[in-house]
């Protein structure tokens, strides 16, 4: 069946079986391989995307459940001219990534956090991000990157 979604502001239609996950459609049908699949049971958070602005596990969602909604993936985070989102810039500056596999999920979860709470404390950042697993960084630089991005975003005019 055909499913039409808005992905990063562009309307996209894919022909899929009802049992196909949103993650697989994004990756294999739409070529958006920035969304990664780490556990396929909703724990690691690598596949996190925003659905109408709220973070969801795209490995636990069928593509048909997202029909007609706005999906934002990591590919939609930077500006159209390639300027990095403040979170992306802060992850770079603070060495908030190593292998990069979990990174898109962290970026999307952090973006939802900063949309809701522009001035999180370190403890709030840690709690919010506890739904995403990273095996490389020990989280310290990820937390610092989110705090740095928040600070920079608050400082922006």
């Amino acid at each position: 069946m055909d499913v039409t979604l808005s992905v990063n502001g562009v309307s996209r239609t894919a022909s899929v079986e009802p049992r196909i996950t949103l993650a697989d459609v994004l990756r294999d049908e739409l070529g958006l391989t920035g969304t990664h699949v780490g556990c396929e049971h909703g724990v690691c958070g690598a596949c996190t995307v925003l659905l109408d602005g709220r973070s969801v596990r795209s490995c636990l969602l069928f593509a048909v459940q997202a029909a007609g909604q706005e999906v934002t993936t990591v590919e939609g985070l930077a500006a159209a001219d390639g300027t990095l989102h403040p979170l992306q810039k802060a992850f770079h500056d603070a060495h908030g990534l190593q292998c990069g596999f979990c990174t898109p999920g962290f970026l999307m979860a952090a973006r939802e956090l900063l949309d809701e709470n522009p001035s999180p404390t370190e403890s709030e950042v840690r709690t919010w991000l506890s739904g995403n697993l990273c095996r490389c960084t020990g989280y310290q630089n990820i937390v610092d990157a989110v705090l740095l991005a928040a600070e920079r975003m608050r400082g922006a005019p």
Partner: peptide
């Protein structure tokens, strides 16, 4: 970093 932060990394999958 840049490719990994923008979803342009190339992993086996």
């Amino acid at each position: 970093d840049r490719r990994l932060l923008t979803g342009r990394g190339r992993y086996t999958g």
